[in-house]
């Protein structure tokens, strides 16, 4: 039985294993088909298009201009600005969402809360499963100067008016709050899951030793929340780098370009038929996301043996 065409070191018996294993290939086939047709092929296509001249991109034989599109976008001030803006927004949005989620998870899992915890959790997670488009449509109108509740509420409290999505100064904050409303419940749920696994005995022991609330939080609870902090930060970075729906609904990149993030700008160019540049931007964003994911994966791996 020294066949040259049987290289697979199978888990079961070598001769019987082949037909057994063949079944798994069959099981995986539809999944593989979807992954290839709607995942890998479009990605390759996108990179391919980014190397061609936009006007010829969709033709059977496009003209290849290689890195011209990349050169073009890297000297496009609007793109560079939108990239920088995306990074700044991501930093703020990640910090705001993760901090808010952490704080809120600590509050509703604390002993001070004795009833209503399920209700608080449901309310917190409802925006996550609400169609984002519908949620942002409602927020778009909440900020409206004449219909909106935000303006009226601030006036009621005698506070200065909030420009919302209409003002250059506040548009990004308005977008951030709406996104926080939609996303933060997800991060809070991850923190809550992690908190449920925390060792309560350590907290009690620290209290016995006379540790103050802040010390307990900093030295006892937070170190145990490292896994959730890592996961949430990575998920949030990837999520907010891609910020798109909220912009389409609420600001369309405005006012005056102050919320023109990379994915929205790329989509606009695509809409104008500038396929080469749009896909080049997609590749740049993909590279950033991939680096973030890879670094996170490394950090996660290092933690494993501990």
């Amino acid at each position: 039985m020294t066949s040259v065409s049987a290289p697979s070191p199978a888990r079961g018996g070598p001769s019987l294993a082949l037909p057994r294993q063949a079944v798994f290939y069959l099981f995986a086939l539809p999944f593989a088909a979807l992954t290839i047709v709607f995942g890998l092929w479009p990605i390759i296509l996108s990179i391919d298009v980014s190397l061609t001249k936009s006007a010829t991109a969709l033709r059977a034989e496009p003209t290849y201009v290689w890195f011209d599109n990349y050169r073009k976008i890297l000297s496009d001030p609007i793109f560079l600005e939108s990239l920088w803006r995306t990074l700044v927004y991501t930093a703020f949005a990640v910090a705001a969402n993760v901090t808010f989620a952490l704080g809120y998870a600590l509050v509703i899992s604390s002993k001070a809360i004795t009833w209503g915890r399920t209700l608080f959790k449901i309310a917190m997670f409802l925006p996550v499963v609400t169609p984002d488009l519908a949620g942002y449509v409602v927020w778009r109108w909440l900020y409206d100067q004449s219909f909106g509740a935000v303006t009226a509420f601030l006036a009621l409290l005698g506070l200065p008016a909030f420009g919302g999505i209409a003002s250059v100064d506040t548009a990004m904050i308005a977008v951030l709050v709406a996104e926080l409303w939609h996303h933060t419940g997800f991060y809070a749920v991850i923190f809550l899951a992690n908190l449920a696994l925390c060792d309560r005995a350590l907290v009690d022991a620290a209290k016995m030793d006379g540790a103050k609330g802040r010390q307990i939080l900093w030295y006892v609870i937070l170190p145990q929340l490292r896994p959730a902090l890592l996961i949430n930060t990575v998920y949030a970075i990837i999520e907010f780098l891609k910020t798109f729906t909220v912009i389409v609904i609420m600001t369309k990149g405005g006012p005056n370009g102050t919320t023109n993030f990379v994915s929205y700008y790329a989509y606009q160019l695509f809409d104008q038929g500038r396929y080469g540049e749009a896909t080049a931007m997609a590749t740049v964003l993909f590279a950033i996301v991939a680096v973030v994911a890879l670094v996170a994966y490394r950090i996660g791996d290092q933690r494993e043996p501990a």
């Binding site: 798994f24 995986a28 290839i36 709607f38 990605i43 729906t245 989509y267 896909t279």
Partner: peptide, 29 residues
């Protein structure tokens, strides 16, 4: 087996790609 490893990596790559930017080439597909 390598086809399975390749499939898993391919899938992980796919989900890392910015979704709304994947949708655009999906139009062409």
């Amino acid at each position: 087996p390598w086809p399975m490893k390749l499939l898993r990596s391919g899938f992980l790559l796919t989900i890392m790609y910015p979704y709304m930017l994947l949708v655009i080439p999906v139009y062409i597909v």
